[in-house]
Design a protein around this nucleic acid. Structure first.
Length: 673
DNA sequence: AGAAATTTGAC
DNA sequence: TCAAATTTC
């Protein structure tokens, strides 16, 4: 009896039918209507980038057909407000229950709670589950019952919990379909015309979708996993799992990954294969970091926009758009950094090691605000993941209790020796250095003139001299740090005196706006492509960006990005789609030829900037939530014993999004499962 | 050789 | 941080 109250299963970042607790529960409860709501405006300025949207599109199509084969329909809705869309779906299907899986970013926590409130008020039962983590964030606590604030301790505890993570669920054999005839789907548009060509190339290297994710996992476990610990010093991506984009959209469950990998470990341990065992530990650690990123996001909901350690807000970041541009273009003069940035630019992908190299360079050598780098990663990475990226950047920036020392500068030259000893990686991505002998490949500035000449390199002309000398960077960093401590002390004095003034601009409390006026160099290639909108669009394009000098706020400048609600498509700024190679003649063919078949020769970027910050102070409240009758602790700065050392978390990202509502609403967010 | 200092790696 | 590894004295 399909009329007898059907069940809505709301898919978000859990685009799989296997080990999907919300789906399983919905199926158990009766007839199911599956729904996906595309509401990118809710993400504020973390609107998904082009490659991420491409992935989502494929993944959804895949899920849709899987569900269809099982007997259910996936309804897709374009929305600017998930809550009201969901309400609409509920009404038009006559549903009595809603099922979904948890997310842990602050926006989702608030939104999901609101949904729970609104629907409960209408008599709809709402049930939510853990599908994204081995353990829920509130389950993993230290002996005093407090959340951990270092990764090692956190992960130790995860691995020694008194109970195992839930075993993965099988996909449903058959789904009884609810009546969705009065609930039409909207067509979701994830790319515009100018993005199609670049997106088509992505399909050569990647296959989104839950069963492809499963294949990727199997391939990895039966192949590179055993060598994982040996290979982790190489810049080459070939030995990585390639699971991150699949995991971001929940196409494969971490619990399954965990179980399969642990199984392998037991096997290797029996065979006395120490390297294999160690490899599993290392790989699991990266799974653990993903867990930890959600954990931190849950316990410190502002960690994607503010340093966790308070003193860092007094760090005098260098707001230099020229540096930022050079970094993005891969023209810093440090070959390993530049190769990494070109690879990111060309493929949307970077080995974890290289992510550390380029981001560390960004923060420590260029001393640019880490939040910019994080935003750039968000816009360009195929596996862009707010929680993971925030953790990574905070770690690099030294803003975590267990992060890198702030005054330590990694020298890209020496990292080059380590990660790319033969210079292959650099040569692949920097064709202009391809003919440089290995001895000089990571420090061309030291090479004798004759060597440079023979390699066709003219420093400062077809390859830049180092943008900042490492020694100068060290001195500058010391200077910046002493300033930071002075400001910090001054601030403390102000607080103690109860005075409200004096402190000022050096603090990050007035957030440094992401430079949105990014201009593309109008060069020969633009002209050649003769893109009709090139002239007007260029300042929205990140392709070959050059920055103008001002830090103009977005709302003043980017009216062309305004969202028109009647537009049913994703409002993505038009890109100029072109083959772009770093300047210099070496260019296209050279790079394309050296590309392995699984790497994409061409890419475009979009700048998905939205709302500028206007942070308003507002205090959050401590709260607890119900969980099947049990009480589940929720993040609470006032009760957390170590919150003192963290930045005051009173000014909220959430407050900038009127649709997100108050933190107070978290209070009774149901965690039923 | 053996202690001390320095560098490295980790999340 | 901090322990381990490596280099220096």
């Amino acid at each position: 009896m399909s009329g007898g109250g059907c069940n809505i299963v709301w898919f978000r970042r859990d685009l799989r039918v296997e080990d999907n607790p919300a789906l399983a529960a919905g199926v158990r409860a009766g007839a199911v209507v599956a729904v996906f709501i595309w509401a990118p405006e809710e993400e504020g300025h973390y609107h998904p980038g082009r490659v991420s949207r491409w992935w989502l599109k494929q993944s959804l199509a895949y899920l849709g057909s899987s569900l269809k084969n099982l007997g259910a329909t996936l309804i897709t809705k374009r929305s600017t407000d998930s809550v009201s869309s969901l309400l609409e779906v509920v009404k038009s299907t006559g549903a009595t229950q809603l099922f979904f899986n948890h997310l842990y970013d602050p926006l989702s926590l608030v939104r999901d709670h609101r949904i729970k409130e609104v629907l409960s008020a209408q008599g709809i039962a709402v049930r939510s589950f853990n599908a994204d983590l081995l353990f829920e964030p509130w389950e993993v606590l230290d002996d005093q019952g407090h959340p951990f604030n270092t990764f090692a301790a956190f992960w130790d505890r995860c691995l020694s919990m008194p109970y195992d993570p839930e075993a993965p669920l099988l996909p449903p054999k058959r789904i009884k379909s609810g009546d969705a005839s009065r609930c039409p789907s909207d067509t979701l548009v994830f790319e515009d015309d100018s993005e199609k060509a670049s997106n088509a190339l992505l399909a050569r290297a990647w296959s989104p979708g839950w069963s492809n994710a499963d294949k990727t996992l199997t391939t990895f476990i039966n192949g590179p996993l055993i060598e994982y610990s040996m290979n982790r010093r190489k810049a080459d991506s070939a030995t990585t799992s390639f699971l991150s984009p699949h995991l971001h959209f929940g196409e494969v469950s971490v619990r399954k990954v965990f179980h399969l990998v642990r199984m392998k470990q037991v096997l290797w341990a029996n065979e006395g294969n120490k390297a294999g065992e160690e490899s599993v530990n290392l790989f699991l650690k990266s799974i653990g970091l993903r867990e930890y990123s959600r954990y931190m996001s849950f316990n410190h909901p502002y960690s994607h926009e503010r340093p966790l350690l308070a003193h860092l807000k007094f760090f005098p970041w260098i707001v230099n758009e020229g540096y930022f541009k050079a970094w993005r273009q891969g023209r810093t003069g440090y070959p390993l950094v530049d190769a990494g940035m070109r690879e990111l630019w060309a493929t949307g992908w970077l080995h974890d090691r290289i992510r550390v190299v380029v981001s560390s360079f960004f923060v420590k050598v260029l001393q640019l605000p880490w939040i910019w780098g994080m935003k750039y990663f968000w816009d360009t990475l195929l596996d862009a993941d707010l929680e993971s990226d925030a953790l990574g950047w905070q770690y690099i920036s030294g803003t975590l209790p267990d992060g890198r020392e702030f005054d330590r500068i990694d020298n890209p030259q020496f990292e080059g020796y380590k990660f790319d000893p033969n210079g292959e990686y650099v040569r692949r991505w920097l064709p202009e250095l391809a003919r440089l002998p290995t001895d000089w490949i990571h420090h061309p500035w030291d090479a004798p003139e004759s060597v440079l000449q023979a390699a066709g390199i003219e420093l400062g002309s077809n390859y830049p001299l180092p943008i900042v000398e490492i020694d100068a960077a060290k001195a500058r960093l010391q200077e910046a740090l002493s300033q930071m401590w002075q400001h910090e002390a001054a601030s403390r004095a102000v607080v103690e005196n109860g005075t409200e003034e004096g402190l000022g601009d050096s603090s990050e409390s007035a957030p440094i706006a992401y430079p949105q006026d990014i201009q593309m160099d109008v060069d020969h290639e633009t002209l050649r492509n003769n893109h009709p909108t090139a002239a007007i669009r260029r300042n929205e394009d990140q392709m070959v960006p050059s920055m103008t000098t001002s830090l103009v706020r977005i709302e003043e400048e980017e009216t062309s990005l305004e969202i028109r609600p009647e537009d049913s498509r994703a409002e993505v700024p038009t890109d100029i789609n072109r083959n772009e190679e770093p300047r210099g003649e070496a260019s296209n063919q050279a790079v394309t030829q050296t590309l392995p078949s699984n790497i994409l020769p061409q890419f475009t970027f979009t700048l998905g900037l939205r709302n500028a910050e206007d942070s308003t102070a507002e205090s959050s409240s401590s709260s607890r939530r119900e969980r099947d009758g049990g009480v589940v602790p929720v993040w609470s700065p006032s009760t957390s014993s170590y919150s003192e050392q963290f930045v005051g978390e009173e000014s909220s990202y959430l407050q900038r999004h009127p649709e997100s509502h108050q933190l107070m609403n978290w209070r009774r967010l149901s965690q039923t499962g």
